[in-house]
Design a protein around this nucleic acid. Sequence first.
DNA 1: TTTCAAACACGTCAAGATGA
DNA 2: TCATCTTGACGTGTTTGAAA
Length: 95
Amino acid sequence: MPVYQIHSPTSIMSQGVVVTASSNNLHSPQIMAEEATRKREIRLLKNREAARECRRKKKEYVKCLENRVAVLEKQNKTLIEELKALKDLYCHKTE
DNA sequence: TTTCAAACACGTCAAGATGA
DNA sequence: TCATCTTGACGTGTTTGAAA
């Protein structure tokens, strides 16, 4: 009979079964399948969190760009006004 | 109030980038 | 070279706002 030891999980990542089976059962098809399933679940969980973080960063980046656009548009408007004022001043001087 | 399209959020997969 | 991370693409479910 295989001897399994189930450790209480310390985190969501370490969820699963820790196997301390005797060496002739370490590579049994069932153990291998369980290990593969566990690895897949961990990978999916990590990727789920990575995708969330990636989206959060992308949203933040887009917000930064939008802020920058707003600032530059304001600057552009101010410069256009300034140029207009200078042109007016120049025209009146040459009259 | 109901219907429906558009926008949004999420989970998954796959491919490329990166570090050990 | 391998394991892990990052991110674009896709499919699916949910939310939202306008039109009937």
